[in-house]
Design a binder for these strands. Structure first.
Lengths: 166, 166
DNA sequence: GTTATCTAGTTTCCTCGGAAACCAAAGTCA
DNA sequence: TGACTTTGGTTTCCGAGGAAACTAGATAAC
């Protein structure tokens, strides 16, 4: 049996890549405003949609609801976002950016965009399109549990854990 | 200024992709042997190189040395790996798989390979080659700090943290 | 040779964030 | 109406792992 070469193993490579990119990008958020990535994601989501409940932010940004809850609490404490209880459903609250939060968003977005552009630098249109499609493809496969033959009954409560993946 | 669409933001997509893939794959390791990903990486590295020091495992698998230390301790406690102090340098120890560890490796490798193949399923040769090159390209750009114009002096001690990235 | 620096590896401390429990408000069904 | 369930959100608890401190051995400088 040929040994597995870890450095060529796709899940491993994807993970190292994502970690490297994130590490580099997190520096940008952290060193300018001292915000965490969950906080950035909440800001980014609110910047994009104006007004959202925690539940919707969680589903759109693919974060755990507790993560969103904590990030939102931190942002509210800083006075960057506003929380308004929904009169029609008292369980939930609409979150919106306050001017200070909007200012942070407006400052970070071009930097984030520049960063992402830097990653793509040197790739032509076809390659960028290919990247786009490939990520979509892999995402879809990964979501379907890839090659796992696990019956439906065993699904639905995957163990979540670990930041160092693969 | 156009708002940033988080779901199209490359670092975010890479991170969600890596997280999804890892989550799915981690199930495979965990449900068969109850091992963590750091443990898997140590096993995979030793399966590939036979005999390595903790330092080398850390650098090859891109894990923090404390993570390797703990994973190795756990594997040693299970009797899956053997630790032999290097007589020529008493600080370090060579790690090797013991038969039980080798058996786990031999069982997991084909499953991991099948999983990775499942991700690539439906892609032709060109697309697979493109994926390979694109990951390499992005990796290289990300490592160079992408588009950050930060002077050299400020580098070298990036803040590390957070598993939910971007 | 002795002192200072460096390095492999472990341990301690602390933060992050997921799981599970929990709370309060809806929704459902009799 | 009242029990049971479901859902948005928070809190409590705990495990993972990075930072920093530490140990012990190696290397360099003098």
């Amino acid at each position: 049996m040929p040994p597995l070469r870890l450095e060529e193993f796709l899940p491993y490579r994807l993970n190292v890549l994502a970690a490297t990119v994130s590490e580099s990008l997190a520096t940008l958020y952290a060193e300018r405003y001292g915000i965490s990535i969950p906080e950035w994601r909440v800001i980014a989501t609110l910047g994009q949609f104006e007004r959202m409940t925690g539940r919707d932010i969680a589903s759109h940004s693919r974060m755990h609801k507790t993560t969103v809850s904590r990030a939102a609490a931190a942002l509210e404490a800083k006075g960057w976002i506003k929380r308004e209880t929904n009169r029609a459903d008292l369980r939930e609250a609409f979150l919106t950016l306050k001017p200070k939060g909007r200012a942070v968003y407006d400052d970070l977005v071009p930097r984030a965009t520049t960063f992402a552009d830097g990653l793509l630098d040197g790739l032509d249109r076809q390659e960028r399109a290919a990247l786009d499609r490939l990520i979509g493809h892999l995402m879809q496969r990964a979501r379907r549990g890839a090659a796992d033959p696990v019956p439906e009954t065993a699904r639905g409560c995957r163990p979540r854990r670990s930041s160092t993946r693969c």
